[in-house]
Design a protein around this nucleic acid. Structure first.
Length: 293
DNA sequence: CACTTGACCTGTCCGC
DNA sequence: TGCGGACAGGTCAAGT
């Protein structure tokens, strides 16, 4: 569930909270969540200072002063929650989904010199946190393959079209979810942008008219940016770096809206179908199916 | 090579 | 109430 807007919201929050802090301890209970040699971990990041928090696609990078980075993928249920002096003994805000930490989904705990802590929680254990030399990050497989950042100015219509050409025989939903086509789109924003562009998710990429691709390009950018402005989507698990929910779900037009009236006012009901192996939300009337060029 | 499906996990919900 | 099974969805490996 954490997609580009959620990861970006975490990045912005973490940047405010942990820059300049010194790591004094790292502990973990599930090796797959933190597949690093414990001795190396100690040698490479203990007493290191946090210098920057970056994002590429759905991947977060916490750069430290030893030229190493903690590279983090939250996958579906990962959370990065900071607890610091301002929250000690203060209880938890109403919009928090997270209670006392650590809890049973806590996989990694990073403790800073001022006793504040960063918790990596991950109920389903799909996410991971790896220690990698900062300069080597571009060489890891995922970074080499991942497509353009949709919110960069370089993500032009032409770039989008060219990227989609590589998947022209598959359905548009699978193409949008393919991280080598565009970085950062997941199930929520694929459904939302396809609805906004009026394209049925089962449409074959090569059969979609150029003006619709143009609309889809603009929809992707709009939907992602709107969600960042709303602090991301909290469907079940997602929280920001302070443990708080995002509010985009109350603006979602089709995602998890099955059974409701189409917000376009066309009179039909939002349906849930399966496309590319994923739950997919559509308005049959407003989203046109393109099968043949 | 293009494309699809299954595995990785755990918590929740639904039907019997 | 208990219990099995489907489902949730990001990514990679394995399959067609």
């Amino acid at each position: 569930m954490p997609e580009l807007p959620e990861v970006e919201t975490v990045r912005i929050g973490l940047k405010k909270l942990i820059i300049g802090k010194t790591i004094v301890n790292v502990s973990f209970d599930w090796p797959k969540s933190f597949p690093n040699d414990p001795q190396q971990t100690a040698a490479f990041i203990l007493n290191a200072r946090i210098q920057n928090v970056r994002r590429r696609a759905k991947v977060l990078m916490i750069d430290v002063s030893t030229d190493y980075s903690l590279v983090i993928h939250l996958k579906m249920t990962g959370q990065l929650v900071y607890r610091g002096e301002q929250t000690f003994g203060a209880g938890h805000p109403n919009d928090s989904l997270v209670g006392d930490l650590p809890d049973k989904s806590t996989r990694v705990i990073i403790t800073f010199a001022d006793n504040s802590q960063l918790f990596f929680n991950d109920q389903r254990k799909f996410g991971w946190m790896r220690l990698i030399p900062t300069l080597e990050i571009p060489n890891i497989d995922f970074m080499k393959k991942v497509g353009p950042e949709p919110l960069e100015p370089s993500f032009t219509l032409q770039v989008f079209q060219d990227q989609l050409l590589r998947r022209k025989n598959t359905n548009i939903k699978a193409a949008l979810l393919d991280q080598t086509v565009v970085a950062g789109i997941g199930n929520i924003y694929a459904d939302e942008s396809l609805f906004m562009a009026g394209i049925h998710p089962k449409s074959i990429v090569g059969a979609i008219p150029k003006r619709r691709i143009n609309l889809l390009h603009d929809s992707v950018v709009h939907v992602l940016q709107l969600s960042i402005n709303k602090g991301g989507s909290t469907d079940k698990n997602y929280v920001n770096a302070e443990g708080k929910k995002g509010s985009y779900m109350s603006f979602a037009k089709v995602f998890r809206q099955e059974g409701n009236i189409c917000p376009n006012g066309c009179g039909s009901i939002i349906e849930k179908i399966k496309v590319a192996g994923r739950g997919t939300h559509i308005c049959k009337k407003c989203q046109k199916l393109y099968k043949v060029a």
